[in-house]
Design a protein around this nucleic acid. Structure first.
Lengths: 348, 348
DNA sequence: GAATCATGAGAAAGCGTTTTCTCAGAGCGT
DNA sequence: ACGCTCTGAGAAAACGCTTTCTCATGATTC
């Protein structure tokens, strides 16, 4: 009674290596050896051990293994918002790919609280063998400071000067230019970019791309409208969009575009007859909106699995500090029914 | 050189409790005490330790802690398919709620491979302090056998006779009846249920509910059509639906309904003028389809956070084996624009 | 047939914590 | 001033495993 430890031992305890050893009449060490196939063990003894293990349904305790081996067979992923289909897809791709190699993934959702991201990432890193970091709004300086402490690390849509950190990014600048170009070639002359979160790195990239677009197309009117990154912000922008008088709308992403689509529909504005709308990302739902959404497809499933591949490379060549690949994906335009030639000449 | 261990020790190693102890001129034990605030420590010494810890940026190794404490502050969740918005929402709710209490979640996606679920769940359980299990197609017998080995366990949409396992479930039978009732009250006389995966427990519940509905409404024609649980299967059923001659369609879930909506649109069938369609679940996208989808809303966000609450209760009262709550949610009908009175009398 | 080697199993030392056990020294009462 | 309790810190055991080290046994070689 006084010995809490002993009490727990007798009642609760799961079967451990010691039980198997005892049952097989060998030492812990031998059990470990046959379980891991590391050193040569007499076939007869090995069989005895395996039989004992099977009978007791012995499964090695992963925490014990982790401590001894210095690895957890787990990687962490930190995302700003698990409600966002893009991150869901990345998580899924990552999880499935990692599982194939016997790794699990631990998730950390920062709920868009930028200041938590570094802490979450650090904590995840301590529990895991590596971290995949999606932190679109983290300040560059903070990222630079954080990245080296997280290695092995894979960055999504961010880069760092730390040359041993692979990063996966999407060329949002090019994608948004292509979409704008597409609208122009359809005959649109007045465009609006419904921008995303102010500090988002990918939003900045889109803005840079649009600057370039403007330089190449001085004749096109391109307004900027502040928005967010989800349904509701797209929906809320409906009035402003209508008021803008533009006929071609570049939404920050598919979510915003869908919110806008819904808002326009409620107001009786027809898409694409009255206004053309484009999204970005090509989330699975994009082809099922009405009308199906023209968008820039980023290979979100691949992103997750490639993130794992890059992570695995780092884990395997532990400590060799080679410089890592920087993968950049070019979005592929997916022209659907939400864009068309404007009904009438813009009233400029 | 011969001593790989020492080599690693000098170069790689993260700062451990021993380093802090040395720097502060105290023992490991004291550092541990200060870090955890467990026993009384002389304020002066405590300050010295804290200073040393801060200077070295010491963070306790979670694996070591886990081994000593016998807990990992992590729970696992196994889902059949992370691409399904329902499970995404549960995962998200769970993750956020758990994070609030300092717990992380480890994910295991069985990719619909039923035979893997038990293994994944077992492995997750060994790594974690508990498991949330979503296994809609696992055979009852297998579940009964598995459940006791997983405790603490929370079941989603399944129940077990093991009285110490809380379960969260949705009354799909009632929900589908309400939807059918809704269609009937609009004037529909020929209905189709586009069913889900054959072995899905929730699909069986819907079928039971519909049997009851049939008994109460012998005058209504209700056909069954086999389908799946995702977009594509809804889309693929388009022709069969049209051929059925029914005017009211009960889709297995929102995904299927959306696929169907898209298929009907392509074929020029108007919703709801020609055919009314209902979904199930009320995933976030359901209110943004065109037309917005009439569906039975299940509180998917709450489901995740409640799952955590039930899990926490079990973790806290470790070993008391009290009988656990069985929560059942009644879906709330969400009438939108995808259902309306049929245009003309059915041709029966 | 004795010396050398390979084989393979057990003992023990880690891995990084927490927690019990033990004991030195301070504080108190008489 | 002596013995008692009490506080608090260090030593050591424990958590469950892997792996090195050590050494016995039997096989091999000259």
């Amino acid at each position: 009674m006084g010995r809490g430890h002993m009490a727990r031992r007798n009642t609760n305890r799961r079967v451990g290596i010691a039980d198997v050893a005892e049952k097989a009449g060998v030492s812990h060490a031998t059990v470990s050896r046959v379980m891991n196939g590391n050193a040569a063990v007499d076939p007869g003894i090995a069989a005895r051990v395996r039989a004992a293990a099977a009978e007791l349904k012995y499964q090695p305790n992963p925490v014990g293994r982790s401590l001894a081996l210095g690895k957890t067979d787990t990687i962490g992923i930190v995302v700003p918002d698990l409600a966002n289909p893009t991150f869901q897809a990345i998580l899924r791709g990552l999880s499935i790919a990692a599982a194939q190699d016997g790794y699990r993934v631990l998730i950390a959702d920062s709920s868009e609280v930028t200041s938590e991201e570094a802490i979450l990432a650090g904590e995840a890193r301590r529990r895991c063998d590596g971290v995949v970091l999606c932190a679109p709004r983290m300040a560059d300086a903070e990222l630079e400071e954080l990245a080296p402490t997280l290695h092995p690390l894979v960055l999504i849509n961010r880069t760092t000067i730390a040359t041993n950190t692979p990063s996966l990014s999407v060329d949002y600048g090019q994608g948004i230019q292509e979409l704008a170009q597409h609208l122009v070639s359809l005959g649109h002359r007045r465009l609006v970019f419904l921008s995303g979160p102010e500090h988002s790195a990918s939003n900045r990239q889109r803005l840079v791309g649009l600057d370039q677009f403007r330089a190449e197309h001085p004749e096109i009117e391109l307004q900027m409208l502040h928005g967010g990154s989800n349904f509701d912000s797209g929906h809320e922008s409906t009035e402003a969009i209508i008021a803008s008088g533009a006929t071609g709308i570049l939404a920050f992403n598919d979510l915003v575009a869908m919110g806008l689509l819904s808002g326009l529909h409620e107001r009786g504005v027809r898409v694409p007859e009255d206004i053309s709308v484009t999204g970005f990302d090509d989330i699975p739902f994009a082809k099922y909106t009405t009308p199906p959404l023209t968008t820039a497809a980023v290979p979100i499933n691949e992103l997750g699995s490639l993130a794992w591949r890059r992570m695995r490379e780092q884990i395997q060549q532990a400590g060799e500090a080679t410089t890592q690949a920087q993968d950049e994906f070019s979005p592929r335009m997916e022209i659907r029914k939400s864009t068309a030639a404007p009904a009438l000449k813009p009233a400029s």
